[in-house]
Design a binder for these strands. Structure first.
Lengths: 113, 113
DNA sequence: TGCATACTGAACTTTTTGGTTCACTAACAG
DNA sequence: CTGTTAGTGAACCAAAAAGTTCAGTATGCA
């Protein structure tokens, strides 16, 4: 079992990236680690709110934090996104060719229960 | 404007795939189109509940329906997942090499505001 | 020491989500 | 026709999510 990533914390990851604020946080951290306050600054919400978003990202394994004095420095941990990318890419054959419509036509005759 | 998919309905897509039931529905439809009832059958919830999930998937552009008599036949529409895959793949450089930690070390000195 | 800064935690509010039930419409089967 | 099957729509509920405020804890700085 090497690819058990799915359905273990995967659900958390999908839930984590569902929120646009959290996706924006990830984008910001892609530019390099930064302090909680700096991450929070661009958003029109309190620091506490952003702090909660960050905690959700942490639990999803997407962000890690290291304390430097009173500052919390956040950095991106993108591995879980690999699973997401691969999950979506699993549907590749449906968008590559327009074979989804084609195959639909085929299978309809048999598979339709 | 051909690639405006992002941020237009993209948010809906991310929200749509956040729910495990809805991901399961997509998986089922990957095997071919099927009727609402048949899609609903495996789940431990009412048909109405599944119907609502399907509507969310439709609004996200992930599922389309065609009526055949009184039956609603659902089929997968995977295009939006391409955007998801590409979005996640945008973070590829962070998981490919362990260069995220490396670069973190670099940028920390300058970027830390 | 003593005040400002950088956060967290707890309590609370509002909105959204995921589910239910029940009544309804439409289509098919005898 | 009549009854059964396939599905929606509306009203409702409980729990979760997203945000707030306020109080508290460390750390840094003068």
């Amino acid at each position: 079992m090497q690819s058990t990533q799915s359905t273990l914390a995967s659900n958390d990851v999908f839930a984590a990236i569902a929120d646009p604020t959290r996706r924006a946080i990830l984008e910001r951290l892609a530019a390099g680690p930064s302090r909680m306050s700096d991450v929070a600054a661009p958003f029109d919400m309190t620091l506490t709110a952003v702090s909660k978003h960050v905690r959700i990202l942490e639990r999803a394994g997407l962000v890690s934090r290291t304390r430097r004095g009173r500052e919390h420095v956040l950095s991106l941990d993108a591995q879980p996104l690999r699973a997401v990318s691969q999950w979506a890419a699993g549907y590749e054959r449906f968008w590559n060719e327009r074979l989804d419509r084609l195959e639909a036509h085929f299978t309809r005759k048999r598979t339709l229960t």
